[in-house]
């Protein structure tokens, strides 16, 4: 991230970012939004190539990065899924990326193995963006969530955010845990006991920011408290007993009835895809901001790409 004078050339984990770096990314995203609104030609990364390596399926993250790169005047190469690639022939990840660094100026990668983005960043010389590594981190999603909160609420300070759902395996909430307390945002963690936030993240956040998030096992506990409700999907495959899944998943959904007790200006965010944790009836309420997140996501990714590849400002 050479334009910002940052230590790291890569975006691997929200835990690596300083507040100054995050503020710089948010400011850059605002500039991108401004450019877009004014209809100014965006040729900031003309001649640059982004490689999108999605070893796992992705709809939003991949298309969002590709859209961002195209809007900046750059080009995109890459794959989604490993069919037809050398990976299917047994090629090791490090060999794959050593080749790809000769084709592109930056890599965005999603891979099911945790730590894979860090390994790739240590293997190649070009900047690497983690587009999700297993259940570990998804820093660009957390940055776009933060940007959405800022735009929707007009500030970040003194907000109360409830993170709900699968906090154990949800990579976006793992990343958010490092970004939200940076700005003094108060946290509540709502999940079934079996899907609680990993203890090492709680310990790390307590040590870094001196905060101890409150734990809850019901949305009822936080609905009137929260300024932002961040809902994540509880994945069926995390449960060995289907009955247990039905029981748990059914108690973490948002509907109009629940929202009767919410603050009038509360906003609901979701990294998507949602299944049935937010009922479709909520989509038309003023609380629903999750589709707007995807728009802000493009601005954040334009900002990240421009900063990392040293484009003009």
């Amino acid at each position: 991230m050479n334009n910002m004078g940052l230590k790291s050339k890569d975006l691997i984990s929200a835990a690596d970012l300083t507040k100054v770096e995050v503020e710089d990314i948010l400011r850059e995203a605002d500039l991108m939004l401004d450019r877009l609104k004014k209809g100014r030609p965006a040729d900031l990364l003309k001649g640059k190539i982004l490689a999108t390596l999605f070893f796992e399926p992705s709809t939003r993250t991949r298309l969002s990065f590709e859209s961002a790169m195209h809007r900046l005047g750059g080009s995109v190469i890459g794959f989604s899924g490993t069919e037809g690639t050398s990976v299917q022939k047994g090629e090791k990840l490090q060999d794959t990326v050593r080749n790809i660094e000769n084709y592109a100026h930056c890599i965005v990668m999603r891979n099911s193995f945790e730590g894979s983005a860090r390994l790739v960043a240590e293997t190649v010389k070009i900047p690497v963006i983690n587009g999700g590594d297993g259940a570990n981190q998804h820093p660009s999603q957390a940055l776009l969530d933060l940007f959405t909160i800022k735009k929707e609420k007009g500030r970040l300070a003194k907000l109360r955010v409830a993170l709900c759902g699968d906090l154990r395996y949800g990579r976006t909430v793992h990343s958010l845990m490092y970004l939200l307390p940076m700005f003094g945002i108060e946290l509540a963690l709502v999940s079934p006991k079996s899907l609680r936030m990993p203890e090492y993240i709680i310990d790390d956040v307590r040590e870094r920011f001196g905060v101890s998030p409150a734990f809850h096992d019901s949305l009822d506990d936080v609905i009137s408290w929260a300024d932002v409700l961040y809902v994540t999907r509880i994945q069926r495959e995390r449960f060995t007993d289907p009955n247990e899944y039905e029981k748990v998943a059914g108690s973490y959904f948002v509907d109009k009835k629940l929202l009767e007790r919410a603050k009038k200006d509360m906003v609901i965010l979701h990294p998507l895809p949602r299944v049935d944790e937010i009922k479709p009836e909520v989509d038309s309420t003023p609380y629903a901001k999750y589709f707007g997140q995807t728009f802000y996501g493009v601005m954040i990714r334009m900002a990240i790409l421009n900063l990392m590849m040293g484009g003009k400002r």
């Binding site: 945790e114 730590g115 570990n136």
Partner: peptide, 21 residues
Amino acid sequence: EECVTRFLKSGGKYKCCFCES
């Protein structure tokens, strides 16, 4: 993958520099 593992002491535990656990 073939690589050298790396762990940093964090409190009384060790943190994997790759997967962060």
